[in-house]
Design a binder for these strands. Sequence first.
DNA 1: CGGAGTTGGTTGGATTTTCCAACTGAGGTA
DNA 2: TACCTCAGTTGGAAAATCCAACCAACTCCG
Lengths: 147, 147
Amino acid sequence: MTSQVRECSVARTLDLIGAKWTMLVVRELHLGSHRFDQIVRHTGAPRDILTDRLRKLEANGLVERVQYEDHPPRFEYHLTDLGRGLGPILTMLREFGDRHLAGEDGPPLRVEHSCGHDYQPVLTCRACGEAVRSADLTMHLDTAEAS
Amino acid sequence: MTSQVRECSVARTLDLIGAKWTMLVVRELHLGSHRFDQIVRHTGAPRDILTDRLRKLEANGLVERVQYEDHPPRFEYHLTDLGRGLGPILTMLREFGDRHLAGEDGPPLRVEHSCGHDYQPVLTCRACGEAVRSADLTMHLDTAEAS
DNA sequence: CGGAGTTGGTTGGATTTTCCAACTGAGGTA
DNA sequence: TACCTCAGTTGGAAAATCCAACCAACTCCG
């Protein structure tokens, strides 16, 4: 009996971004903070941990380390195309927080869509185009439900 | 100068679900595993850690502990309405994994929409209804960009 | 009746990770 | 010369995690 543990896409994604601080780093890169000290200040992450997270993000192809100065050599961090693909995850994290955990003075992070309005994300089904309510979804599992 | 750390909705959400194992537990509850031992088997989480995560999810109102047997007293865990609100986050974690980190034999986790097709999520803008590309988004920050 | 199995944990101790403050090095600025 | 910036690195304490074993209360089987 092979271990029963589900090796699904959720788990694989969390292997990349599930560690503490990682998603806050991704948020900062998304927001335009590309320098080590900026990220430290905006996230509060310990410097050594940040080094570790950036190295791992780079090793996994989500982030690029880019030299922006020669003397002394200095580097910035930028999301790759793959890393930008994390945007929707960030979006839904933000959406949940905005809806349920609003701070006193509203969300400090506003996002505007090119249509001119505040961006409030809605999940729709690619096939039918309808907005998706979780009640409309059915899960199909390979592994046996029981045991 | 107050700490510069961004206390945004992303950070607040991660405070609830950012710890290791937590999202896998939420995945299991979503998939219909409600019992302690099932969750252990399907996630691989250490039992003591799982106890901790379930207690915290309960304390934060995302999960309910429900007695399903009197003698001996036995309990199951169910998502609350608030906890079901994490569905879209799970969805986007899965989507990223499906797209970029596919396992050998395809995603073991299929989701079907009530329209009859496999559910492939698309983010749209509530205001204009269009599918959102990340290039169409503009971030507005309260905290100063510099420093 | 005795023994094994199920369920939902708890416990102790080793290991790993995190945290924090201080330090470094290469250069710029006053 | 003295101080500042930036991107880290280092050492050591503190916290979290992991693991295997244990436990309690019950059921089932023979």
